[in-house]
Structure formats: C-alpha cells, structure tokens
Design a protein around this nucleic acid. Sequence first.
DNA 1: GCGTATGGTATACCGGGTCTACTTTTCAAC
DNA 2: GTTGAAAAGTAGACCCGGTATACCATACGC
Lengths: 212, 212
Amino acid sequence: MTDHPGLRQRQAQRTREAIQDAATRLFLAAGFHAVGVDEIAAAAEVSKRTLFKYFPSKEDLVIGAFADHADEPARTVSDRAAGSSPLDALHNHFLDGLARRDPVTGLDDRPPTLAFVNMVLSAPSLQSRLLLYQNKAEQTLAETLDKTCPSPVEGTARLAACQIVAILRTLAEDNRRCLAAGATAQERYPGAVEAAGRAFAVLRHGLADHYD
Amino acid sequence: MTDHPGLRQRQAQRTREAIQDAATRLFLAAGFHAVGVDEIAAAAEVSKRTLFKYFPSKEDLVIGAFADHADEPARTVSDRAAGSSPLDALHNHFLDGLARRDPVTGLDDRPPTLAFVNMVLSAPSLQSRLLLYQNKAEQTLAETLDKTCPSPVEGTARLAACQIVAILRTLAEDNRRCLAAGATAQERYPGAVEAAGRAFAVLRHGLADHYD
DNA sequence: GCGTATGGTATACCGGGTCTACTTTTCAAC
DNA sequence: GTTGAAAAGTAGACCCGGTATACCATACGC
C-alpha cells in the first residue's frame, strides 16, 4: 500500500470543495433563503443528487465549517500541558483565540466573517442546527472530562461540560453583539479579555456572590 | 363592554385545540415522520392552509407544549418570595417539579409522556427546535435577573442565565436517561433530588473543586 | 485485462410550506 | 336593522428541499 489518497478520492474531495465554495459564494451574495439547491448544483456543475451525497441538507452547506470545531473544547482539555487544569487550559485557549481573532470567539471583524455570521443569524433553521452542534460539543467535552478527571459522583462531568460550553457560547455572542453594534475587534479586545476573565472566575467560584 | 372573549376567538381556540389534539394523537400512534400534515388536517377537519395559520411548521405541532414553559425560569425568579434569592427560588422550584413529577424535570414516567419524549428524541429537527426555545428561556431569564438584581458589570446576568438554563436542561436529561434505562420515577426520585442539590451547589460555588 | 465498487447523471416523485382567489361569518358603526 | 370591514376558512395550484429508480462511466484490485 503506497499513499492512500488515490485519484478517485482526490476527485471526490475536489467536487466537495467545488460545491462548498459555490454555496458559500451564492449564499453570501444573495442570502441563504434566496438561493436554491438547484442553483448551487448548477454553479458547481454537479447534479442535485451528487450535492446531497456530500451534504445531507442545505443547512449543512453552511454549518460544515462550524462542525469542524465541535470537538475543540474536548481536544483543548485532552491536549493540555501537563500540570495545567482543564479550566486553565480552556481559559488560555479562549484567550489565544481572542488574540488570533478566531471566529469562534466572535472577535473576527473581517467583512466576510461578519456577512457569514449575519447570514446564520437571519435563518432560524441555521441557528437551531448550530445549537445542535454545540450540544455535541458538550457531550464530547463531558466524556473527556470524565476520562481525565474521573469523579466518584455520576454526572459531575456533564454538569461541568454544559456550563463550560454555555459560557463559551455566551462570551462569543457578546463579542459578536459588540461588533454588530459597530465596534472594531481592536476596540473590543480588552473588554473581551476582561469578560472572559470574569466568566471563568464565575465558572471556578460560582454565582453565590451575585445571585444568592 | 361585557366579556371580551367573543364567539369568534373561542371558535378559533377550539379549532386550534382540535388540530393540536389530532396531531398529538397521530404522532404518538405512528411517529412524527410517518404522519403527514395533510393527514393531520383531515383528522382535525380543517384545510392545510388553516393548520399552518395556527402552527407555522410541522414541528410547532409538537413543540408548542414546551414553548409554554420557555419563560418558566424567568417567572420563577420574578415571582419568588420576598427575601429568597434567585438561586434559592430556582432550586426550590425544581425540587417542587420533581415532587410533582413535572415533565420538565424529566421525572414523569407515565407512558404517554415517555412516548412523547421518545418521539422528540427520534427526530433531530424536533431536538434542534427545542434547543432554540431553551435559548429563548435563557434570554428572558437574563433580562429578569438583570432587572431584579442589577449588576454594575455588563453581561453578568447573561453569564448566569446561560449556566442556569444549561444546568436545568442537563438535570432533566439525566433523569430521562434513568427512566429510559428502565427505572421508575419513584426509584429515581431520591437520586434526582440529590443530583439537583449537587448541581445547584456547583452553580453557587463553582467548578474549582472539581476541575481546577 | 476484467469484474466491481464507486462517483456521477437524469428524471420523476414525495412532502412541507406558500400563494391566489374566493366564500362565509362575526361584530361594530351607522 | 343593515351594511361593510375584518377575520376565519376552503380549494387547488405551486415552489422547493430531499429521496428513489434506473442507468452510465471510470478508477482500482486482482
């Protein structure tokens, strides 16, 4: 067995990318709702049937990019440096993301990204699909937490995971809200770092100081 | 002006209920996917158009029951007894729900409820819609928290709300998992109370003891 | 080289959801 | 009362996302 990416699979990958690219381009130009799958298939020069072989639904043409990040929190925990705690690792990873203006932190203000985010927010079917992926992120994180820091009490990892994922999502949402209100990523950056610090402090030490 | 629920609105309400009832009955009998909207409309003796006037999508025929509970956490906080904290109120409300075997706590093991839950879990489109409603619950809770316990720091309420809603959802999921594994509500009840206690303790005092 | 699995096409079809145009009925104002 | 606008409802065509059938072509293992 030589190298495995045979000609066949490379061609398949190319068509997949062609479909994805055509879809993204058309969606950004005219909006999710306004573009039909027939149109996308035609632009990518494939049949509708082929399109659905690669992307099981129209929504997946958009969400695919996000789906790749579904296991990011879990990987962050399992790949953490020896001696650092899961919460440290997640906190640092988020701060890194902010510095890199990673789109998952909500702090990417490049016009294409803003347009993409705007498109997702405009279509409820896309939003709900996105939440489904975050649910998956929660499950993989729970498994990883349970593996690396097993607890005698059943369900501890799930409780932690749902809180962590919810916090990450809310932090990103807050940043996007600021950018949508006209701020630049540059302007928001210090506030975003501070908000992340507060959020992880709450995760560590609880809400008792605020709502008890 | 006498009583204002005029004849017209009462009739509208009746047809709405007729549609809802027919849908629930058919879905439970044959499964969400296997029943078409035409079938439901025929069973309720209305036209398809009328059906969609009351329920914007097929999913809404199922989710409607859940949607009514979307603002329950927010109401629990705003209606709490004087002198009790938001977290106390939410904790007690959840314990009440467990004692009453309220379906939102996941501890209702009556066969119709189990069948209903099973149906939702079997259809991804229903699950994602459900998550969308929990997102709404999060927002209304955040607003209420901000009103009753205003914080000087922007975003505190949203951070708290997302954690609280996530915890409530996870507690209910854990209970449903136990019932699905064959336990009765009776058997699960003590464990459910204990799990809720642990979860609210984590909400109050943080994850530092577990993952830091 | 050759059978086969795989990637692809054309086309018809199903089901959810919308649109148009029309009928009936409540309710309020004159 | 009568009348007229608003609302509830119907029928049927229509659009679009997604699937099933049947078939073609070609890379790949032997």
